[in-house]
Design a binder for these strands. Structure first.
Lengths: 166, 166
DNA sequence: ATGAATTCTGGACTCAGTCAAGTATTTGAT
DNA sequence: ATCAAATACTTGACTGAGTCCAGAATTCAT
């Protein structure tokens, strides 16, 4: 049963260990999972693993481009194994649910900035923020951010204008 | 001296306090500063302020859209007072230097998700990652192949705060 | 001037992630 | 198959960014 992943690791100069195989499988079966979620998953399969091993492996894999790490504001880093294409993400402000979004421009797009300040740009990260259907129902018409520490929506009437235009 | 900002706060239903005025001034004079940098700056002006007050104020301001918060992967949240227009950011993987980038594509076709999964999208966040000229010189072309995710500044701090997962 | 509402302070606490050092595995060469 | 070097894993302490809480201090409408 050690073939695909096994080979992938070897080809990238990484040693093959039970932990790594389990981590890679976890990533591909739980796209957009956080490190903690992956730890839980792996423990369910392997029995036990240290948090450090997971972080180390994830970094190693990310460095070799076998997994992609995304770090949305307001949540821990998430990992996915869909690499090699430049796709983006759609994240719900309510529940954090994340979806992949194909780039509207095809191949390796979006890498063009008007004024690149002489930078050597290697990636354009795009995140669409919004509310998923069920969170819309749960708290219909409540701006971004959840109300802080108060009862759900109360006095504060401030309703910033519509969605900021893009 | 208390006119513009003062008024802005009042108009948004926020009480006017010395701390808030100082924080707003700090934000506008140090675009892209982190909360800690702002605290230092404000202390230099006001004398002293609690960390909590700064976080509270920043959140309140962000909520009223008087300030925009950006949370680039691998660094603490940064704040800027350029709001109301949709501009993006160019960040150096080496030193974290951040620049504003006007929307590159005009109407930005790239910012309209192909399949919106029935989300109510309110923002498209774009971050261009690369290396600034001086970091390019500092570590010129390391490992032609691997590239991406340079080792420098590996400190990635936890980031949460935004929408709480429910 | 007064008091209710809002804001500020300070300290404890949480979370995601990192550092360090010692132990265990993998792997290539014999 | 053996063995040592290279890599990987484990434990546990530690950090930085941000949050929670309760009491003290301000702000502002009357």
């Amino acid at each position: 049963m050690h073939s695909d992943i096994d080979k992938l690791l070897r080809e990238n100069g990484l040693q093959v260990t039970a932990q790594r195989l389990a981590i890679m499988r976890a990533v591909s079966s739980h796209p957009h999972a956080t490190a903690d979620e992956l730890i839980d998953d792996v423990r369910g399969v392997i029995g036990s693993i240290s948090r450090q091993a997971v972080y180390d492996t994830l970094s190693a894999l990310a460095e070799k481009n076998l997994v992609r790490r995304i770090q949305p504001a307001g949540s821990a880093a998430r990992y996915e194994d869909r690499v090699g294409d430049n796709h983006h993400h759609l994240i719900c402000r309510g529940c954090g649910m994340t979806f992949d979004i194909d780039c509207a421009l095809g191949e390796a797009p979006c890498l063009i900035a008007d004024d690149d300040h002489a930078f050597e740009i290697d990636e354009a990260e795009v995140i669409y923020w919004g509310r998923c259907p069920s969170c819309q129902k749960a708290a219909p018409d409540d701006g971004k951010k959840a109300a802080r520490s108060g009862p759900l929506q109360s006095s504060s009437k401030g309703k910033r204008a519509g969605p900021k235009q893009i």
